[in-house]
Write a protein that binds this DNA or RNA. Structure first.
Lengths: 196, 196
DNA sequence: ACCTGGAATGAATGAGTATTCATACCTAAC
DNA sequence: GTTAGGTATGAATACTCATTCATTCCAGGT
C-alpha cells in the first residue's frame, strides 16, 4: 500500500495540472498545494514527469476496471453500451480535475515514451471494449451488420469525449450523466429519419 | 499583405509546435527551422505566444471560410453535412502539422486569454454551422424532429475530431477523406437496426 | 565612392525552475 | 536522557530559454 503522502501529493498535482497544464505547472506549486516542502516530492516520485506517469498508470487502471464492471453487470449489448457511457460520464463528472488533465494531456502526441504507452494502452482497451459490445450487438441482432467496426469505435469514443469536453469548457455547470441516454439514443438511431 | 518572412516563420513554427508541442518548443528551434536568427522572430511577432495566436486567428479563419463555401455549394441538408465533413477531413489531411497543433492546443483549457477567445470562437462557429444544417434537415423532413440540438452538435463535432485524432495517432498513414461517407452514414442511421 | 535607414543578427541578460543534499526534525526504543 | 533511523526541509545549484539591443549588413539613392 502506498503511503498517505503519496496520495496527497498525487491529488495536489492533478489539481495543479488541471489548473495550469502540465508544462506550466511547477514542482513548487504542487508542493505548496500538497502542504509539503519541494524536496519531499522527490521522496515519493522520481521527477515531475513521474507524477504524470503515476497518474495515468494508477487512476486510469482504476477507472477502466470500473467501466468493465458496469458493462459486465448487464446482458444485452444495448444495456452494456448504455452502462459504459453512463459510467464514463459519471466518473468524469465526479472528478473534474482528472477530466481536464485527461482532455489536455491525452492529445499531446509528444509526451514522454512511458506516458504515451499508457495513453495508447488505455485508449486501445476502451476501443476494444466498445468493439466487443458492438459485435455482441450484431450477434444479438440489435445492431447493423454492415458496420466498419474500426470507425464505429472512433465515432463512439469521440462523441463521449467531446460531450465531456463541452462540459469542461462550460465549467462543469450542468449535469453530465443525464446526457448518457440521449447520447446512446443518437448512437443507435442516428439523426436521420429511417426509410426502411 | 504580410511579408514573406512572416509566413516562413509561421509555417516553421507550426512544424516545430507539431513536433514538440507549444510549451516544449523553443524560439531558437523555430528560428533555426525558418532559417533566420532568433532576434528576427521578434521583428514579425510580439513574442512566442503571439505566434500561436497568429496561427489560430489566421489559419482557422481561412479554413472555416472553406467549410462554409463547401456547405453553400449544395442544397439539401444531407449534402451540406456530407460536404462539411468531407472538407473538414480534406483540409486536415492536407496539413497534418496543423491538425496536430489543433488537436493538442485546442484542448488546453489554460491558454492565454487571447488564444482561448479564438478557440472558443472557431468552435462556436463550427457548432453553429452544424446546428443550421440539422435544423434545415428537420424542415426538409430528412432529419428527426425529436433531437436535442445542443447534444447533436457535440456528437457530430466530437466524432469528426476523433476520426482526425485517430489518423494523427496512426501517423497519417491512411486516407482520411474516404472516412467521410461512412461517417455521415453513421450520423444519419446510427448503429442500431431500425424498428420503425 | 559615400551615405542612410531599414532589416537582420546572435551574443548577452535575466528570470524562472527542476533537482539535490546538508541539515533539522521526529519518534520510539532502551 | 540518549540515540538511531526514517522522514522532511528549503536554500543552493545548475541549468534552460524568452527576450533585448548594440552591432552589422545591404540596397538604393546621391
Amino acid at each position: 500500500m502506498k503511503s498517505e503522502k503519496y496520495h496527497i501529493i498525487l491529488d495536489a498535482a492533478i489539481k495543479v495540472f488541471a489548473e495550469h497544464g502540465y508544462f506550466q505547472s511547477t514542482v513548487a506549486q504542487i508542493a505548496r498545494k500538497a502542504g509539503v516542502a519541494d524536496g519531499t516530492i522527490y521522496l515519493y516520485f522520481e521527477n515531475k514527469e513521474d507524477i504524470l506517469l503515476q497518474f495515468f498508470s494508477y487512476k486510469t487502471r482504476q477507472i477502466f476496471d470500473q467501466f468493465q464492471k458496469e458493462v459486465d453487470k448487464v446482458d444485452s449489448a444495448e444495456d452494456k453500451l448504455r452502462n459504459l457511457v453512463r459510467s464514463h460520464l459519471k466518473e468524469f463528472q465526479g472528478n473534474m480535475d482528472m477530466a481536464i488533465v485527461f482532455q489536455a494531456e491525452t492529445r499531446q502526441i509528444q509526451q514522454a515514451e512511458a506516458i504515451k504507452t499508457h495513453i495508447r494502452d488505455i485508449s486501445r482497451k476502451y476501443r476494444e471494449l466498445v468493439g466487443e459490445i458492438v459485435e455482441e450487438g450484431q450477434r444479438e441482432g440489435c445492431m447493423r451488420k454492415d458496420l466498419y467496426i474500426g470507425l464505429v469505435k472512433t465515432y463512439i469514443t469521440g462523441a463521449v469525449e467531446e460531450v465531456i469536453n463541452s462540459w469542461v469548457q462550460a465549467g462543469g455547470k450542468y449535469d453530465l450523466v443525464s446526457m448518457a441516454d440521449p447520447l446512446v439514443d443518437l448512437y443507435l438511431k442516428g439523426i436521420g429519419i429511417q426509410t426502411v
